[in-house]
């Protein structure tokens, strides 16, 4: 396990050592849109040809609105779901076709912290047995070795080990999420998928859990795929950010670069719409009109064109190319270079 120093400056990025690589990954679902049994099922393109590489030790933030496919992408990336097409390489190993015992072994290296802390904890198990379960099953720990290790894990996530006998229901929201995190790090995984891991928490508790996640990443050398819809929190924890819209990552850049210099009109709208607790900032609001189209029936050409303030004729005809704005900044837009800063 590599120890990784605290990264809060863009300059300290680790390069060229990807832990997880997705290449042209798609996840399509067949959906019945009609009650007529002879009506053919439609294809819902939740994730549509996404390529992405996550470096060892970084936090990759994935933002997007509901229906953008960010959660589906996360689930496919850690193989909770199988991709429809494309390849996924984890730690040098191709995992997109893994199944059975082999897949379960891979999964131990990639743990998940879920959005709903209460829902993700078995209500009939104590906190201690929830955290200890992976250790019992996979490392065969028993008795005092197990309780010591559980106590250590609880301390490392800021929980009082004397609460090991408590049921999840007896804990506060923040404490429950700490249990979820302790369970996730119990087996020393390499990658953690944090799927809206702080979104359901109270504002004052969000900050605590965010700090804990950052602290654990540095202490344990973890890599995060951090999915969220709240931009401020992503800016706080991620080194790189990908913006998803209707199944595609439309822009990827280093965090500071993305927030200071957004290239895609959707990213800009997202940034402009994100409320800031400062009433003096009456910024130029880019109000997007309408709602995202359904992924069942994607627009031709660029998928954002139906809501895009800059849309032109070419956008309806040709899918936008991937434009390399800088070595670390790519964007899918016809006007990427000309759209100004």
């Amino acid at each position: 396990m590599t120890a990784v120093v605290g990264i809060q400056d863009a300059g300290e990025r680790l390069d060229g050592d990807p832990i997880l690589t997705l290449d042209e990954v798609s996840k399509h679902f067949q959906v019945r849109t009609s009650t007529n049994p002879f009506h053919p099922a439609s294809t819902l393109r939740a994730v549509d040809g996404v390529s992405l590489s996550i470096e060892r030790g970084e936090t990759f933030g994935l933002v997007g609105e509901s229906g953008s496919g960010k959660s589906t992408l996360g689930r496919v990336a850690v193989r909770l779901d199988a991709p429809t097409s494309g390849t996924i390489t984890f730690d040098g190993q191709s995992i997109e076709n893994q199944g059975g015992e082999q897949l379960r072994r891979t999964r131990r290296q990639m743990q998940v912290v879920f959005q709903d802390p209460l829902g993700s904890l078995n209500p009939r198990m104590s906190v201690g047995s929830i955290i200890g379960e992976p250790l019992r099953v996979f490392e065969g720990l028993r008795g005092s070795t197990l309780t010591d290790r559980v106590a250590e894990l609880m301390r490392s996530v800021g929980l009082d080990p004397s609460r090991a006998a408590a049921r999840p229901r007896a804990l506060s929201g923040g404490q429950r999420q700490r249990v979820g995190i302790a369970r996730a790090i119990a087996l020393n995984p390499r990658l953690i998928l944090a799927d809206e891991a702080v979104s359901a928490l109270d504002v004052s508790v969000q900050a605590q859990i965010t700090n804990l996640l950052v602290d654990l990443r540095e202490r344990l050398g973890l890599t995060y795929l951090f999915i969220a819809h709240g931009l401020p929190i992503v800016r706080q924890v991620a080194q790189r950010v990908g913006v998803m819209y209707l199944g595609r990552i439309v822009e990827v850049a280093d965090t500071d670069d993305l927030f200071a210099n957004p290239q895609h009109p959707y990213t800009r709208a997202l940034l402009a719409a994100s409320p800031v607790p400062d009433p003096t900032v009456r910024r130029e609001r880019i109000i997007l009109h309408g709602e995202p189209p359904t992924p069942l029936n994607l627009p031709s050409g660029c998928r954002f064109r139906t809501r895009c303030p800059m849309a032109a004729e070419v956008c309806a005809q040709v899918a936008p190319p991937v434009v390399q704005v800088s070595p670390t900044h790519t964007v899918e837009c016809h006007f990427a270079e000309t759209s100004g800063i």
Binding site: G173, D202, V205, A207, N211, L231, P232, R235, L271
Partner: peptide
């Protein structure tokens, strides 16, 4: 404890301890 959208990012967010 709300992370800023512009300027420097704090290494540690000033959180309120405890819970509601």
């Amino acid at each position: 404890c709300i992370p800023p959208m512009v300027g420097a990012r704090p290494v540690v967010l000033p959180a309120i301890g405890g819970s509601v």
